[in-house]
Computed example of a mutant assay.
Amino acid sequence: MIRVVRTMNVPVAMPDLVAYLADFTHAQEWDPATVACVRVDAGPVRPGARWRNTSRFRGRDAEVSYRLDVQEGDRLVFSGENGTVAVTDDLRFTPAEEGATRLVYTATFRFKGVARLAAPFVRKDVERLADDVAAALPRAVTRRVP
């Protein structure tokens, strides 16, 4: 298992940031590894909503099916899975100074089967990906959310 945690201050009001990030389709704007993210069901974004996310990691594309599990005013939890990995993205929000929001983003990767053996070898790449998200997310949000 690999767990990465990144904390960032985003210059957007908390309700607006939570609403933006609840729609996982926006991952293609704030996650540099995401190639495409498509909603696979219809209706309002709420727990149970599902997406198909294609990410490029270590030069290869991987598709992961994501579901929104928790949607609260100060927390979002997404779970994703494919044949080799189960991912949990846990986002926690607190108000910060001058209308900004403090976001603590925890991503947990649980590798399956033979892929478990690769976990120690991909840790640095996962850490780098988390750094890239922490740098890109605040910029992407401020471009999209007034």
Rank of each mutant, 00 (worst) to 15 (best):
V4F: 00
R6L: 10
T7G: 07
V10T: 05
V12F: 01
D16A: 14
V18F: 12
Y20S: 00
L21R: 03
L21Q: 10
A22I: 02
F24C: 02
H26F: 13
E29A: 15
A33P: 05
T34H: 01
R46H: 04
W51G: 04
R52S: 11
N53R: 13
R58H: 09
R60S: 11
L68V: 04
D69T: 01
G73W: 07
R75H: 02
V77G: 13
S79L: 12
N82V: 00
A86Y: 07
V87P: 00
D89F: 04
D89N: 13
D90Q: 12
A96T: 07
E98G: 05
A100Y: 02
A100M: 03
L103W: 02
V104E: 14
A107Q: 12
R110Y: 04
R110L: 11
F111T: 05
F111S: 09
K112A: 06
R116I: 06
V122K: 04
R123V: 05
K124S: 15
D125P: 02
D125E: 14
V126H: 05
R128A: 15
A130S: 15
A130E: 10
V133R: 02
A134E: 07
A135H: 11
A136E: 09
R139D: 15
A140G: 07
T142S: 15
R143H: 12
R144E: 06
